[in-house]
Design a protein around this nucleic acid. Structure first.
Length: 558
RNA sequence: CGGGGCGUAGCGCAGCCUGGUAUAGCGCACCUGCCUUGGGAGCAGGGGGUCGGAGGUUCAAAUCCUCUCGCCCCGACCA
């Protein structure tokens, strides 16, 4: 491709709206443009990258026997009503009516459609297993689109669905997907983790997420480098650092106007980990007191699994129910249900005295109050692994893929049944598996860039090679460049030639920004001696090569 | 949806607080010419703006007030 014939609108300056590195570079290097919040146009280079990623995905999906299909992005409401998600899902679903007044929606995902298809087409155990996939647009009315292409309202997704006769079949399909995903992300040149994740509203027993470490990520994972434990902090378990056993006697201490753990801790000059944080919650109509250590955060999701949906109590409710304002509540002498973090079982603590401007020192759990014990704290850096007791790391990550076991959550309501060997009707066991190609591209940029721009891995770079004829007015330069360009094309190498009438500096800057892995630099002086230079974008080193040897050399490298 | 920020030429910004400089400014980009050609050159000339929109205050509004739309960031949400 000739640079003069392809739209690559590079930007010298950083657009004001971009903050994430990948967002800045995709805009500056001319890969994308924004139409509206969470809606992006992929320019030629951007599209080429996405298509390279899609090609890798297709190859690996096909390799596990998955079959590509394509389903509509516009759905009738009925299928979503069948499974109940029409009612469960709120504003995040784009809804509309057709001219006949029928309710429709834009597909956020395709479990319903797959289950519908399966219900029509699958009759017998002999037709199972099946894996069906598509690479298709998904639409979600995100509350907050952000970070460029990382969180958008319309996005491409590879979604596949496995249909199996039984649990073992599902297990197999799940593992096939995990293997395929490892291959896909490795081929894309990503550093990533496969972590345990919360199946959430997708239902089903197990799920994992594939996470690419990046500062721009929205999620956090807890990683144990020793035993390999890795989980989304949404469910990660951990053992907090230990505390010394204090020989405090039970006594009230005067803490005037000190309400938060931080304030009381500073005031008494005692570390916050010797405090019990008491939080009053309302679950339904019922008050529940949650206790975590002073240096911990209450984990809402973990608590939800124990007491169900809940909210924090209002100030007045705290007073009504516990008879004391929020700053001075403690675990003792209450008749309501108390859920406490397991780590509080051991030790002696300080907490509110249930009396204005007083705290109590020397509280012994189980003796001074009774509670139900659960892990309800958020795992944090420095906590220890529950399996091997080694320190955990917390890392910010971008979710680039996920795999879910759905079981019969969708097949039952959609009546996707088959007949087993004994002629008995059974629900199909399903799995659902997603990958976001745009997130792969963004995550790769996040992990591979320098001050000058993007550094693509060969596998998904928009071009294999870029030729830089430094002086287009020099006929020898043009002649040799064109010759090399044609030779490389003949070898099946995807090459971009910067044939613009620009100064050398401009070409160098743009080439570095765009990030094609190999640059062939054609300068007048070297050419007079029969040489050109080959530059590695990543390490920025150049080697002088005889013109006649360039094609061979590039063939090996690409 | 809560909190914060920002909308002035294609991009990045100044001007706004404290209204008034007859044509609203700067850098980059763009067009023409000359010159230059190994890291975003130089000189000269030029084009491009309903100051996000609507209403209001005023003799006078980019500037003050009200409403509204859009975009970004933090949080909540995220099937």
């Amino acid at each position: 491709m000739r640079y003069s014939k392809i739209l690559i609108p590079t930007l010298k300056e950083t657009p004001a709206e971009a903050e994430a590195i990948s967002h800045i570079l995709m805009l500056r290097a001319g890969y994308i443009r924004q139409l509206a919040a969470g809606l992006y146009i992929y320019l030629p280079l951007g599209l080429k990258v996405i298509e390279k990623i899609n090609k890798i995905i297709r190859e690996e999906m096909n390799a596990i026997g998955a079959q590509e299909i394509t389903m509509p992005a516009l759905h009738p409401s009925e299928v979503w009503q069948e499974t109940g998600r029409w009612y469960e899902i709120g504003d995040e679903m784009f809804r509309l009516k057709d001219r006949g007044g029928r309710d429709m929606c834009l597909g956020m995902t395709h479990e319903e459609i797959i289950a519908w298809l399966a219900s029509k087409e699958i009759r017998s155990y002999k037709e199972l297993p099946q894996i069906w996939y598509q690479i298709q647009i998904k639409l979600r009315d995100e509350a907050r689109p952000k970070s460029g292409v990382l969180r958008t309202r319309e996005f491409l997704m590879k979604d596949s669905y496995s249909l199996d006769a039984d649990e073992e079949g599902l297990q197999k399909s799940y593992e096939l997907h995990a293997d395929a995903y490892h291959k896909i992300f490795t081929r894309c040149g990503l550093k990533y983790y496969m972590v345990e994740s919360d199946p959430g509203m997708m239902g089903g027993a197990r799920s994992h997420e594939f996470m690419a470490p990046s500062q721009s990520g929205e999620d956090e994972v807890a990683i144990c480098d020793k035993c390999g434990y890795s989980a989304n902090v949404e469910l990660a378990c951990s053992i907090p650092e230990g505390i010394d056993e204090k020989n405090w006697l039970l006594e009230e201490v005067y803490t005037p106007d000190k309400r938060t753990v931080q304030e009381v801790s500073d005031f008494l000059k005692i570390d916050s980990k010797y405090f019990i944080k008491s939080i009053l919650l309302i679950s339904g109509e019922i008050p529940v007191l949650a206790l975590v250590r002073g240096d911990q955060e209450l984990h809402e999701k973990k608590l939800t699994k124990i007491i169900g949906k809940h909210r924090t109590a209002h100030k007045e409710e705290v007073k009504d129910i516990l008879g004391i304002e929020a700053g001075f509540i403690g675990p003792m002498n209450h008749k309501i249900r108390i859920i406490a973090d397991s780590c509080l079982k051991e030790g002696v603590y300080i907490s509110g005295a249930n009396k204005p401007h007083y705290h109590v020192k020397g509280i012994k759990p189980d003796k001074d109050f009774v509670a139900e014990w659960f892990d309800i704290h958020v795992a944090k850096e420095g906590d220890f692994c529950t399996r091997c007791k080694s320190p955990l790391r917390i890392e910010k990550v971008i979710e680039i893929g996920n795999i879910f076991m759905l079981d019969t959550k969708y097949s039952l309501p959609m009546k996707a049944f088959y007949l087993d060997k004994n002629g008995k009707e059974r629900p199909i066991i399903m799995g659902s598996y997603g990958i976001g190609p745009a997130r792969i591209a963004a995550a790769v940029i996040e992990q591979n860039n320098d001050k000058d721009g993007i550094i693509w891995p060969k596998s998904i770079a928009p071009f294999d090679v870029e030729i830089l004829p430094l002086n287009m007015k020099d006929s020898k330069t043009v002649e040799v460049s064109d010759q090399l360009y044609n030779d490389l094309l003949k070898e099946g190498i995807d090459v971009l030639i910067d044939d613009r009438e620009e100064r050398a500096g401009v070409k160098f800057k743009d080439a570095d920004l765009i990030g094609i892995p190999i640059h062939i630099i054609i300068g007048e002086k070297n050419l007079r001696e029969g040489f050109v230079e080959i530059k590695d974008r990543r390490i920025k080193e150049t080697v002088k090569i005889k013109v006649s040897e360039v094609t061979e050399r590039v063939k090996i490298t690409v």
